[in-house]
Design a binder for these strands. Structure first.
Lengths: 258, 258
DNA sequence: GAGAGCGTGTGACATTTATCACATTCCTTG
DNA sequence: CAAGGAATGTGATAAATGTCACACGCTCTC
């Protein structure tokens, strides 16, 4: 069965995406170890880290499901029972600090796992997750996932890459929040949405101004004022929740200066 | 050679420490896989994840060295050439934002690796490291370390645990900074030193007031005022850089309220 | 022991940012 | 379409925090 078309885990350099044959169809050689991705242009996609048996093992122990916008996927404090992989859509990670209003921590985009660090910690979900739009997720059996990590060092290595990258990203993002003033924070948030979340100069944030302000840790009114000033200065175009960044270099400048 | 006394990597639940026979003497059975730690009381220490061959491989490819207080261990921007493991002492992790004054990110204490997430990222050191006191470190060959991760899934899993735990810790710490006001930040910093770094109510911070203030992202004068107020309220005792926390529960209260 | 240099604490003031109040717009629902 | 409520923008004000200035005390050196 050389070069058979198979369901497979495709290393997308940054993360994995679990998909049906249709979306990430891959060719595998007779051992199922060397694969070629038809869709994915990432170089590291050329070699998958799982063999055919491992791939089948995962496919036999995963379920796929959908959530509607606003649905809660995970509650903080609950035990981790499955690995949850986000196939499509955006998810917000948040905590409810003492039954008050929620605190948004970050936005998770597709091709990411939800709460991976918690898995290797105390196995209790540290954060809650809710869908910002209609999403698709995969539930993977915890034991299967863990045994794969322990049996297949290359797979473990790729997971390490994923966790490390998230760790560094979060570190940078929070550094910025902890050390910067209002203008720098807003600029950072806009660049974050533009470069990391939407990868576009133009996007529509899935938040009210209130939530947006809470995300970056300032007051609602302050965020409105800063956005208005950015618009006035021609840095961006503003239409409700639609934002178009016109002069990203100025935002970077503002971010740099704190 | 059943139960031979060997040099070994001992899983200290949170991290690893590399040590000579003298300090972490372990018994291993004939395969060298099951070990018992004589000193360490941690439960997870009962089973090491490396066999005798792997242990010897690492011991043959590591060097141990010391740094003096103030010495720079790693410069940001340089390529990662070795895994650096901190055997004893405190190290500060910092960045030099644009040749200006340095920005301290965190304190690293013994039994930690330096810059592990960077290793699995782009292999460039993201941060600089300098010794806050006289320290001992181990340099481990990068290829040996990586091949161990890929060949031994259990070892990889333990590294994953370590990276994940750091990631969660940092996340919590920066959350606190990003969302809290001056009093909450100072309280957090004091609890951080007391509980995580020194594990004691009484300690001497290795920083000037200026550096302390920069670490938590406030002005020097503000930190002095807050500390003075804490002293006035009987929350702590203050003598220069020596700090004795008298009422930790009040600090936790302040931290909680922002 | 005198002086320089650094780290530190504290008051006065300036700036930033949050809070409050309210008008306007937008969206939903009947 | 009308009405109500939520979301938003903006001015006035208060509170928090940074900045500046300066004095004190400690250490080091000559």
């Amino acid at each position: 069965m050389s070069h058979a078309l198979i369901k497979i885990i495709c290393n997308f350099a940054r993360n994995y995406h679990w998909d049906s044959m249709k979306k990430t169809s891959l060719f595998a050689d007779s051992e199922g170890k060397r694969v070629t991705c038809r869709d994915c242009k990432e170089k590291s996609c050329a070699a998958a880290v799982l063999n055919l048996n491992e791939i089948n093992l995962i496919n036999d122990n995963r379920t796929e499901t959908t959530f509607r916008k606003g649905d809660i996927i995970l509650h903080e404090g609950t035990m981790i029972s499955h690995i949850i992989y986000l196939k499509s859509g955006l998810v917000k990670e948040y905590i409810k600090s003492g039954s008050e209003k929620e605190q948004i921590l970050q936005i998770v985009k597709k091709y990411s796992y939800l709460g991976l660090p918690s898995l290797f910690g105390d196995r209790v979900n540290n954060y809650s997750y809710a869908a910002l739009e209609d999403i698709k997720v995969c539930y993977i059996d915890l034991n299967v996932f863990n045994s794969l990590i322990k049996k297949n060092g290359n797979f473990a290595y790729e997971i390490l890459v994923s966790v490390s990258r998230d760790s560094l990203n979060n570190f940078h993002r929070f550094m910025s929040q902890a050390k910067k003033k209002t203008y720098g924070r807003v600029a950072d948030a806009l660049l974050y949405f533009s470069r990391i979340i939407y990868e576009s100069q133009e996007f529509e944030i899935p938040f009210t101004r209130q939530e947006f302000a809470e995300l970056i840790g300032i007051a609602r009114e302050s965020s409105a004022r800063v956005l208005a000033k950015f618009k006035e200065e021609g840095i961006l175009d503003l239409d409700g929740r639609k934002i178009r960044i016109i002069k990203p270099e100025l935002l970077r400048q503002i971010s740099k200066n704190g």
